Amino acid sequence: MICMALLAHEDEHALRNQIRNIRKYNPQDVQIVFYNGGQDANFGKKICEEEKVMYCPYSRPLQQRTSGRFFYDVMRYLEDKKVEYEYLVYMEYDIMFVNSGFREYLLGKMEGCDCLIKMIRKEVDPNQASWPPAKDMWKDWERWKTIFNSDSFYRTSSPMSVFRHGIIKQMLAGLNKKRLERLFDSSNIPCLGEMLYITLAKKYGGKCKIYGDNTKRFLRFRPAITLKEIKEAKKRPEVMFVHPVKDAGVREWIFNQS
């Protein structure tokens, strides 16, 4: 089974449409876990009940670009609840599907590996770091290296990253959870999740594969996906999802497609 970990913080109409969009294009063997990263403690609860989506009770308010603990909270919730799944997918409020086929693509692409990601870079020298969050990690490295037990770390792009349940179990089992909680509480490293999970996976021997170039074009940080691009993606069956969808009109167009 595939489990989608969905992070959102506002706009219940958009949340409901996104849940239905996920289910429309992934009708088989898919569970959704919703994580409320907003200030309203009740955001999304009614929708989760009505749409039969799991609500992560470890949800808490998160700041933009400092949402690193979201995936960890979902991982440990699924373990505590003893949910059976094979793959966990990192989703955010601005990801939408435009074509079917993700399950089949995933089963084929993940054969013999533990992670499916957009890209991977290894950071080995603080003086050579060019990405600002990596620079921040190096500044706080004396504390974080106790989690990684390494002299280096990796980074990726989180949206639509996929981790096999087996590697997640190893990651959770090997963590000093109290130490990690203290770091979550005291560290303000932006994009932390884009370094934390891939580095832990590699620590335990995780093998990673990269999304194909056609998919990566529509899986980016910025600029926002335009309606023209959405219409192009819709005509290309190898493009299954798009990110980031920021415009409400674009979101509605995707949702209303038959």
Rank of each mutant, 00 (worst) to 15 (best):
Q28K: 14
N36R: 10
M96F: 06
M96I: 01
A8W: 10
P244C: 03
G101T: 00
L6W: 05
Y211A: 06
E181I: 09
L175G: 05
V242K: 10
L78D: 10
S59H: 04
G37K: 12
M1W: 06
E181C: 06
K235P: 00
F97V: 01
I167W: 13
C191M: 08
M137S: 01
K202E: 14
W138C: 06
S161K: 08
R155V: 04
P132L: 02
D213T: 10
R179F: 13
F163V: 06
K81Q: 09
Q31I: 00
Q31M: 02
T156M: 14
I167M: 12
L200C: 12
L106K: 02
L7R: 01
L200R: 13
D40L: 03
R69N: 07
E194H: 12
Y25H: 15
L6G: 05
A14N: 08
R103W: 13
S186D: 09
L107K: 09
G249P: 00
K46A: 11
E50H: 05
F102A: 02
L7G: 04
C208D: 08
I189T: 04
K45E: 06
Q64R: 15
C208E: 14
R222V: 02
R143A: 13
S59V: 05
L106G: 05
K82P: 01
G38F: 10
G68D: 01
Q39Y: 11
W141C: 09
G166M: 03
R164I: 04
M1F: 09
R179I: 11
Q128E: 15
A129T: 07
E84G: 05
R155F: 08
M96P: 05
Y93M: 07
E51M: 02
A201K: 08
K82N: 06
K139D: 01
L200I: 11
V98T: 06
Y35W: 06
F221G: 10
L219K: 05
N176Y: 03
Q63W: 00
E79F: 11
K24A: 04
L227P: 02
I117H: 03
G38W: 10
K169Q: 14
V242W: 07
K52C: 03
I22V: 13
K145S: 05
R103P: 10
F34D: 07
D29T: 14
N214V: 14
Q63P: 00
L200F: 12
I22Y: 15
K24F: 11
K45F: 03
S258I: 04
M137K: 02
A248M: 05
V83W: 04
F218Y: 15
G249R: 07
Q64Y: 15
M96L: 11
L7W: 01
I95G: 01
E142K: 11
T226A: 03
S67V: 01
A14M: 12
H243R: 11
C191N: 08
E10R: 09
G166R: 13
M171I: 15
F221T: 14
Q31W: 03
A201V: 11
M96Q: 12
G101Q: 02
